[in-house]
Deep mutational scan, measured.
Amino acid sequence: NQASVVANQLIPINTALTLAMMRSEVVTPVGIPAEDIPRLVSMQVNRAVPLGTTLMPDMVKGYA
């Protein structure tokens, strides 16, 4: 099963992502692949992401 990127904390809108904000977890539906975590660092979210939410490509500016 593919691990996805999950929010490790509440991430406010327009926040630049850091490693501490993300974790890898096997979830359904599948979100951004966990191997993309290094690429996500310093990218901004375009909405508030609650703790435990799977990051989807449309939630991260410049990812999709």
Rank of each mutant, 00 (worst) to 15 (best):
N1C: 03
Q2V: 10
Q2T: 07
Q2G: 15
A3E: 08
A3G: 13
A3W: 06
A3Q: 10
A3N: 13
A3Y: 14
A3T: 09
S4Q: 02
S4T: 07
S4N: 01
S4W: 02
V5P: 02
A7E: 00
A7W: 01
A7F: 01
N8D: 13
N8W: 07
N8H: 06
L10K: 05
L10D: 15
I11F: 02
I11T: 02
I11C: 02
P12S: 07
P12M: 11
P12G: 07
P12R: 09
P12K: 08
I13W: 06
N14A: 04
N14I: 03
N14P: 01
N14C: 03
N14V: 03
T15C: 04
T15E: 05
T15I: 05
T15P: 00
A16N: 08
A16E: 12
A16F: 07
L17T: 00
L17F: 03
L17W: 00
L17D: 01
T18P: 01
T18S: 11
T18Y: 07
T18G: 06
T18A: 05
L19E: 06
L19Q: 12
L19D: 12
L19P: 13
L19W: 14
M21D: 07
M22W: 02
M22T: 03
M22R: 00
M22C: 03
R23A: 11
R23H: 06
R23N: 09
R23F: 06
R23L: 06
S24K: 15
S24I: 08
E25R: 05
E25F: 10
V26I: 05
V27N: 04
V27R: 08
V27G: 04
V27C: 03
V27T: 14
T28I: 09
T28P: 02
T28L: 06
P29M: 06
P29G: 06
P29F: 05
P29Y: 05
V30I: 12
G31F: 01
G31Y: 02
I32G: 01
P33C: 03
P33Y: 14
P33K: 07
A34D: 15
A34G: 05
A34F: 05
A34Y: 12
A34Q: 10
E35R: 12
E35N: 07
E35P: 07
D36L: 11
D36I: 04
I37N: 02
I37L: 09
P38G: 15
P38D: 14
R39P: 03
R39C: 03
R39L: 15
R39I: 12
L40H: 00
L40V: 07
V41Q: 07
V41K: 07
V41H: 05
S42T: 12
M43Y: 14
Q44A: 11
Q44Y: 14
Q44N: 15
Q44D: 06
Q44V: 08
N46V: 09
N46S: 14
R47P: 02
R47M: 11
R47G: 05
A48C: 03
A48G: 15
V49T: 05
V49F: 02
P50I: 07
P50E: 06
L51I: 13
L51D: 05
L51V: 15
G52P: 01
G52L: 04
T53S: 08
T53H: 14
T53P: 01
T53M: 12
T53N: 07
T54C: 03
T54H: 03
T54D: 00
L55R: 00
L55S: 01
L55E: 01
M56K: 08
M56E: 12
M56I: 07
M56T: 12
M56C: 03
P57M: 08
P57Q: 08
D58P: 14
D58V: 07
M59C: 03
M59I: 07
M59P: 01
V60E: 00
V60P: 02
V60W: 02
V60F: 04
V60R: 00
V60A: 02
Y63P: 05
Y63A: 04
A64E: 09
